[in-house]
Amino acid sequence: MSTLAYLEISVQPEDFDLGHELQRLRHASPEAGALVNFVGWVREHASQGALSQMLIEHYPGMTEKALQSIVQQAASRWPLLGVRLIHRVGVLPAQAQIVLVAATSLHRQAAFDACAFMMDYLKTDAPFWKKEIGAFGEHWVEARVSDEQAKQQWKQP
């Protein structure tokens, strides 16, 4: 549906400056009428108790390809002008930023829907592995049925 004028995808251990990233996207899409974003953080509590940190691993090359595919699927469904996607990897303390998904469009609904779609697919289709670490010890996070159910809402008949 759209050809993105701006697309940047990063998988990185470094933190990001949310304001800076949103300004870059906004300036790259001057004709946009809407910019929508989602930021996810490391929760302080896991199912086992207080969380001190999370280890996020990925498969270099494959992960970026999967993220590119997710963004392209969104751009084929909604008239997006720009997308900025960042996912952090490595050891992250509680409350650290993990992910940014941001999209610009002429109208807000397309940007809202595209961001929700990209997050739902990122949670199920991107090759990331997460280990929660705290006073309870450590364990790998398993796929959640609720994430797969959220993704199903986007399936086209």
Rank of each mutant, 00 (worst) to 15 (best):
D17Y: 07
I133H: 10
M62G: 09
V99I: 14
S2C: 06
A94R: 10
P93D: 13
P93V: 09
A32P: 06
L18M: 05
L80I: 03
M54D: 02
A102G: 03
Q153H: 15
S10R: 14
G49Y: 05
M54P: 08
Y121C: 12
P157Y: 07
M118V: 04
K155M: 10
K130W: 08
M118E: 04
Q73L: 08
E14D: 15
H87K: 12
A135P: 13
A5S: 14
T63H: 07
H27N: 12
V39K: 03
W78Q: 07
D15V: 01
N37S: 15
A110E: 12
H45G: 01
Q149I: 12
W41K: 11
E142W: 01
A111C: 03
H27T: 14
V91S: 12
L18S: 07
E14I: 00
Q72V: 00
E14F: 00
A110L: 03
R88N: 04
V83K: 09
L22M: 03
A50R: 13
P79V: 01
I98Y: 08
K151I: 02
S2H: 05
E8G: 00
Y6W: 13
L35E: 11
V145W: 12
A5N: 13
Q68V: 05
P13C: 05
R84D: 05
R24C: 02
L51D: 03
P30Q: 07
H45D: 10
H20V: 07
H139F: 12
R26N: 12
Q109P: 01
D120S: 06
L22K: 05
S29I: 01
V89F: 09
R77E: 07
A114P: 04
M54A: 14
H20T: 09
E142K: 14
G49A: 06
V145E: 15
K131N: 05
V89C: 15
L7K: 15
E138D: 15
D120R: 08
F38N: 01
E8N: 15
L122Q: 10
F128R: 08
W154T: 03
P93G: 09
H27P: 00
W129P: 10
W129Y: 13
E21L: 10
E64A: 13
R88M: 06
Q109I: 04
G134E: 11
E142P: 00
Q95H: 11
K155F: 09
L81Q: 14
A102E: 03
A28I: 02
G61P: 11
L67E: 04
F136G: 02
H87P: 08
K131T: 14
G90A: 05
E21R: 15
L25K: 02
A46F: 10
F112D: 00
A32N: 02
K65V: 02
H20D: 11
S47V: 14
I70H: 04
K155N: 12
V42N: 09
P30F: 10
V71E: 08
L35M: 07
H139V: 02
Q12W: 00
D15G: 11
R43T: 06
E57D: 13
A126H: 07
M54H: 09
E148G: 05
W41T: 14
P93T: 08
Y59H: 15
A150D: 11
